[in-house]
């Protein structure tokens, strides 16, 4: 089997790289293929390839080498290089972004807990404690400290739970200082950022109007 195979379908032209081939063989295979192609193709049409590496991740350096070879031919360029696989690091990142994390601890004065993605919080945040996440916050426990959703700057995130005892509610870059008697003791309070970029409070039954995207995400 050849190290590099040209394929064409409705998405355009693709260069499929044999995942078991030696990288040097891939480079010579690519040169041969492009030599043949440039002899055949009309000089006026520029062809952009998607490079498919199969179940193999090329290093950044290897990607550059392939791009350098293709750039030697005036009529060809690389659109993108894709693989069927990803690093464990990337996989964990994706998993973190998608999961709802369960958190049960007590966050005490001076402690700061930083999370990624959505968090379901069952513990207690004491005065001076801080819970920060990049996603949404669902709070079932007592909150007397600072809660921050959508860190550092995602204003489409929500905080749902009883916030009347909290010190501050932060969503993205917006900060709201909770005054005494500002909010009712209600577990169905929804904090969100409105069109005027200020933190606003609504009720759970208005959630569909507040953030239709959330329903879309859940699939409801």
């Amino acid at each position: 089997m050849q190290a590099v195979v040209l394929r064409g379908n409705q998405d355009g032209y693709q260069l499929a790289i044999d995942q078991s081939a030696d990288f040097e063989a891939v480079k010579t295979g690519l040169r041969e293929l492009l030599d043949n192609l440039s002899a055949d193709a009309e000089a006026t049409v520029k062809i952009s390839f998607d490079v498919l590496t199969g179940d193999r991740l090329l290093s950044a350096d290897q990607n550059r080498q392939l791009e350098a070879i293709v750039s030697e031919y005036a009529g060809f360029s690389i659109h993108k290089i894709t693989a069927n696989v990803m690093t464990i690091e990337e996989a964990f990142y994706l998993k973190e972004q998608d999961n709802v994390h369960l958190l049960t601890q007590t966050i005490r004065n001076g402690q700061r807990v930083e999370m990624k993605g959505d968090v379901l919080f069952l513990g207690t945040i004491n005065e001076g404690g801080n819970l920060t996440t990049s996603g949404n916050l669902y709070l079932l426990g007592d909150v007397m400290g600072v809660v921050h959703a959508g860190a550092p700057s995602f204003e489409d995130k929500l905080i749902i739970g009883d916030l009347h005892q909290a010190q501050q509610v932060r969503i993205g870059e917006q900060i709201n200082i909770i005054e005494a008697d500002q909010l009712a003791a209600d577990h169905k309070t929804v904090a969100y950022v409105n069109d005027l970029h200020t933190v606003t409070y609504g009720h759970l039954h208005e959630l569909k109007e507040i953030n239709p995207k959330l329903y879309h995400q859940i699939g409801g």
Binding site: G110, E127, G128, Q167, Q168, I175, I177, I178, E179
Partner: peptide
């Protein structure tokens, strides 16, 4: 630092950013 209290005594603890 680490054991702040002045903000609490002044009633300003929720305003710290």
């Amino acid at each position: 630092i680490g054991l702040r209290n002045l903000d609490v005594v002044l009633g300003l603890d929720n305003r710290i950013i």
